[in-house]
Design a protein around this nucleic acid. Structure first.
Lengths: 113, 113
DNA sequence: TGTCGATATCAATATATGTCGATATCGATG
DNA sequence: CATCGATATCGACATATATTGATATCGACA
């Protein structure tokens, strides 16, 4: 649930081998990113006016059922890539920049060795 | 096969929504990263002496069968995260820093909006 | 050329995942 | 309080994936 705890290591992959536990935590997040629909959801939310989008915005962008979108949102939320807030009848999703930043750092390539 | 063609876009996710084709290409790579064994393989190769590791080094690091390691190496190679070179009886794997760099850029968070 | 060690491929299987229709929840509003 | 629209959950199913033992390939070497 706590995104930062999921990753627990943000030094580049090349620094030292991940142990099993670290790898399992990081893999959960990458697995969530490993679906085209979820990537598009993330990019829509991230680039949306005000940094947030409601489910209705997202559903409209896909040719998929509402439960399917809801499922993908849940996956992204569970790994700490999105947060949600209910306001009136609508639920708004935002990206968690810290999680993206940690993944970005993990993949960053230290000056060619 | 061509790592750069797989991604085809390295501007941050927040810049503009990915179209279906871009998302599919990027998702393939993230899906490959979404497995703990493959993440550990990558980190072992990346942090190994000389920037490369042979399959024997990798097999020794896991409690998995040799075909399983071979399978994961193939997946990582197919999405452009690893390259391989045969020298004598051994096959050596190296990371493809360009692919990691593109993913890193894609996840980089532009100054908080 | 025949054998051996290292790696890849194949076939099979158990599990995980994406998708959907049906249904439940929840806030707003009459 | 009854209803309606928005979103989440549930159950089911088809497909994808991780893993393995058996086997093939391929280079080295006697």
């Amino acid at each position: 649930m706590e995104p930062l705890e999921l990753l627990e290591c943000s030094s580049p992959l090349a620094r030292e081998p991940l142990d099993g536990e670290q790898a399992a935590g990081v893999a959960r997040v990458f697995k969530a990113l490993g679906d085209p629909v979820r990537l598009r959801i993330l990019s829509i939310v991230a680039s949306h006016q005000g940094g947030e989008a409601c489910v209705c915005d997202l559903s409209a962008a896909f040719d998929l059922s509402q439960p399917t979108i809801s499922h993908h949102l849940k996956v992204l939320k569970e790994v700490g890539l999105l947060t949600s807030e209910r306001r009136a009848s609508w639920v708004y999703y935002r990206i968690v920049p810290e999680t993206l930043a940690e993944l970005s750092a993990l993949l960053s390539v230290p000056a060619t060795v």
